[in-house]
Design a protein around this nucleic acid. Structure first.
Lengths: 222, 222
DNA sequence: ATAAATCTGTTGCAATTGCAACAAAAGGAG
DNA sequence: CTCCTTTTGTTGCAATTGCAACAGATTTAT
């Protein structure tokens, strides 16, 4: 997969792409597991696109809690939403999970039509818009999840969402249980305890990274 | 304020606006306090713009918890992020706070250039993009807030954000304390208790809807 | 192959939080 | 002004959650 294959350049001709690249002057870098891809505290206004590999957006607070704000995969875009209040971007990083390659660009070069008058710029804008909309949807789901008041509700909400997107009652967890706890913003051991309870009550059946929803009226319980 | 004055139509000529309105076939409706402006469960794919008044996006879960997902003010746009998984839009409503007037449109009519070939459609798209970006930022902040593990951290995070956007240590709360508790997704009485503690510890000074941050290193405590 | 690191699974205990219930204050409607 | 609704402020108690600390399993690195 090349950067050209990214959804951002969908329906844009190769020559227009190359022309636009000159306007954007993008930087391409590679990262290994656990390396810091981007420190928002130091790079406000930057936009990155994951070409290969995976990464996570995390916040490390001074009292030692690590929170996973987002999971990033091939083709995902990051950065455009942390460009408001510098203070709040502090402690937020993108960290490489599986070795990845990333393209960095400046926020404004996408927004403003290039002086070269690249013909496909409006299409680019539209694509970017779609990506933002998708991101907005993802964030809404996240808020939806985090607004649940108890660990049980968070787990069930998460499973319901995954079940929905995986189109099956049998869900394969896309991350480790430790990371899931960080994602749900709860204590890992407390989450394990709750998972066990849900198993005992025969509401779910979980083994390793596979969870099956047994109780059919989960949606109505949330 | 007319709909034409909305940010969505920034830099779009009045005649182009009128022409586009034919393509969008928008519906304009008025609402009184506590009336349901929109039920996402019944209207997927709809987009609304608040012309006057205020509203909130809430989710009523069957076990009686009410969660405020968003506050909507004049010029705000809602709906575009709840168009994924129908099941999850269930129980989510926009409810009128202060009497308001709303314009409803179809999501797709903005995305796709009208067949009439309205000249300003690309500008409209760009404006819509900005609104989405702003929304994305807002949701990120929300996730940022809700990912805090304790009530104390949530309060301090909220105050820090408000202080940042109000550019002052003396903050005027834009909602009632009851609504703030719903916004932070915590029990109201527990929040009151924590507010009292913060006052006792001289970290904040709160009286009615005015809160002053006394301790200067709040950011580092989160 | 072996060591090191990470992840899973458990538990007791303490702290935080939610719940229920109430009284007082404030705000709106007639 | 007076009633009625909403909001604020409090508290005891029970339930949930986080913390700390393990041991075993699994994965990754050398």
């Amino acid at each position: 997969m090349t950067f050209y294959d990214n959804f951002l350049f969908e329906e844009i001709k190769k020559e227009d792409f190359n022309k636009m690249m000159c306007c954007f002057s993008p930087k391409i870098e590679s990262f290994k597991r656990n390396e810091i891809v981007c420190d928002f505290g130091k790079n406000p206004g930057i936009i990155g696109i994951i070409r290969t590999g995976t990464a996570i957006t995390v916040r490390n607070s001074v009292n030692g809690n690590r929170t996973i704000l987002e999971s990033l995969e091939e083709g995902d875009i990051f950065g455009e939403a942390f460009t408001v209040c510098d203070k709040l971007s502090d402690g937020i990083y993108v960290v490489c999970e599986e070795d990845c390659q990333v393209m960095f660009m400046d926020y404004r070069s996408i927004l403003h039509p290039c002086s070269n008058g690249c013909i496909s710029h409006s299409r680019l804008l539209e694509n970017f818009f779609f990506m933002l909309a998708r991101r907005s949807v993802m964030l809404s789901r996240r808020v939806e999840l985090l607004s649940r008041r108890s660990i049980r509700e968070k787990i069930l909400c998460y499973l319901s969402m995954e079940s929905c997107s995986q189109k099956s009652r049998k869900i394969r967890l896309p991350m480790s249980l430790s990371n899931l706890a960080d994602y749900l913003c709860v204590d890992r051991s407390a989450m394990m305890r709750e998972l066990k309870k849900l198993n005992d009550e025969k509401i779910i059946l979980s083994e390793k990274k596979t969870v099956t929803i047994l109780n059919s009226n989960i949606e109505t319980e949330m």
